[in-house]
Write a protein that binds this DNA or RNA. Structure first.
Lengths: 143, 143
DNA sequence: TAAATAAAAGACAATTTAGTCTTTTATTTT
DNA sequence: AAAATAAAAGACTAAATTGTCTTTTATTTA
């Protein structure tokens, strides 16, 4: 479904946004430790997120990564798009290039319903929503 | 979602079952041509399907691959399980090992709904159903 | 029984994806 | 201004997946 990197990216952003206020910075080490992932992997992927405007960063001592209050309001889709792209929401279940209502693969109609539902989840769930769940102990970022 | 191999496998089985009657045999070349895929890839993957009992084969001249009428009634899930396994229907969206209703990741509840829906599609749709669609010109296996 | 046919099996190669490491650049603090 | 800190950048390695090829085995037909 999502790539491994993308899953880590979502956890990293939620961790950052749930533990730190808007503008408050966290370093790579801390974020990696907080979501139980490799520092190297997290470092690399945070770069991508900064480049795509999902989060921000500042170099140097007392630098780090942070989210703005606006970025808290963005849907998970932004993270997914930055790392994996949006292809999974348009691709045919059987790999046809031209699969549509007028030229469907044999599972097109049903598959589209499920695929669209996933799309709804990722476009309606916002970073802030998930932070609340984590902060209230209703959801977890680690096993 | 599904691996490339698995997508080809589904198309191969549907092609075989839609073009040939129960017990009627088709060769690798023909199946590969019929779904616009590489002979090598198809040959290899059909082996897997035979081993897992999704289809049957007979060696030698006038040999080939075929499906029984019983195999026509099997759900797509059997193909998916034979090639990719059923993991995609249990895996956590964010990659947690222990993600459940009592220890959920932040998207568990919604994701599970969509995931379960996909599972329903693959367990209720049978090979024969899709063959009918293809044979009636309601669905296609190639672009 | 020999030749031809077609799948089975497995080795191998290529590609893609993921993960790691090193060097560079920017910023801050002393 | 120098030293320290932390991200940026990119090269590199490793692993997983996908795809290709060759050899073997079974079967049939002449």
């Amino acid at each position: 479904m999502l790539s491994v990197t993308c899953k880590i990216a979502i956890k990293a952003v939620i961790y950052l946004a749930s533990r730190y206020g808007s503008g408050e910075k966290a370093g790579i080490k801390e974020i990696a430790a907080g979501i139980n992932a490799s520092e190297h992997t997290v470092g690399k992927l945070l770069q991508t997120l900064v480049k795509k405007g999902v989060i921000n960063s500042i170099k140097g001592p007392s630098g780090g990564f942070y989210v703005t209050s606006e970025q808290r309001r963005q849907p998970l889709m932004n993270i997914l798009d930055a790392v994996d792209g949006k292809d999974i929401f348009t691709q045919c279940a059987l790999g046809l290039n031209k699969c549509s209502a007028t030229h469907p693969c044999p599972v097109h109609h049903d598959f589209k319903i499920a695929r669209d539902q996933l799309k709804v989840i990722f476009t309606t769930k916002r970073v802030a929503d998930l932070c609340n769940q984590v902060n209230n102990g209703l959801a977890y970022l680690v096993d």
